[in-house]
Simulated scan of single mutants.
Amino acid sequence: MTEKELYNALRKTHFPVARNAFEERQSPPYVIYTDIDYKTVAASSKQALIQHTVCIELYINRNDVTAEGRIESVLNELTTYSKSKSYISEEKVYLIRYEFEL
């Protein structure tokens, strides 16, 4: 899967989507995705494999399993992932993180 394919898949959720950050402040729900790790593996002195670990962050202003389900239904078609959830009290939003290799 390419980054463009990931972006297009995330757009199917109908949430605003950005890579790394939005230029303007967004109201939840919205999605940000970013590379959090990048590894290359070489064979015969040539780059043979590139592994990206990607993080998708869903920001919601209330505990909303429907919003989570929209992201998860897209991801379930693409890959396996790990998920974590936290509350950012300063922003009064829930942050749901999904991590996987691209």
Rank of each mutant, 00 (worst) to 15 (best):
V31A: 01
K4Y: 11
N63K: 14
E23R: 09
V54W: 06
E68M: 15
Y87M: 01
E99Y: 09
E23A: 12
I50N: 04
H52R: 15
N61Q: 08
K83L: 13
E91L: 15
D64E: 02
I32G: 02
M1D: 07
N61A: 11
L6S: 04
A21Y: 12
I50M: 05
V74P: 00
K92F: 09
S45G: 10
R62T: 10
Y30V: 02
E90Y: 08
S89W: 06
L49E: 13
S45M: 05
A9E: 08
D64A: 06
R19D: 04
R19M: 09
K4R: 14
E91F: 08
S45P: 00
E90M: 05
I56S: 05
R62M: 07
R11G: 00
E91M: 13
H14N: 15
S86Y: 06
V54F: 06
V54I: 15
A48P: 00
S82F: 11
N76A: 13
K46E: 12
L10K: 09
I36M: 00
L49M: 11
E99P: 05
A67W: 03
I32D: 02
D37Q: 06
Y87K: 06
S84E: 14
G69M: 07
Q26V: 02
I36W: 00
T53H: 04
Y81N: 03
A67Y: 06
Y94N: 01
K83I: 12
F15D: 10
A18R: 03
A42T: 04
S89Q: 14
F15R: 09
T80V: 12
I88S: 05
E23T: 08
D37S: 09
I71Q: 04
H52L: 11
V93K: 09
L102M: 10
V65Q: 11
E3Y: 05
N20K: 14
S82M: 09
S82E: 15
E99S: 11
S86R: 15
A21P: 00
E101P: 00
Y33P: 00
T80F: 11
A18K: 03
N61C: 10
Y38T: 10
S82W: 09
H14P: 03
E3L: 14
F15Y: 14
K85C: 07
K4V: 12
Y7I: 04
K46Y: 06
K85E: 12
F22V: 02
T53L: 07
E5V: 05
R11W: 02
I96H: 05
D64F: 07
V65G: 04
I96R: 01
E5P: 01
T13L: 09
Q26Y: 01
N20H: 13
P28A: 11
E77I: 03
Y87S: 02
E90I: 07
E23M: 08
V65N: 11
K83N: 10
D35Q: 02
L78S: 11
S27M: 07
D64G: 06
L102K: 00
I50K: 04
Q47D: 08
K85V: 13
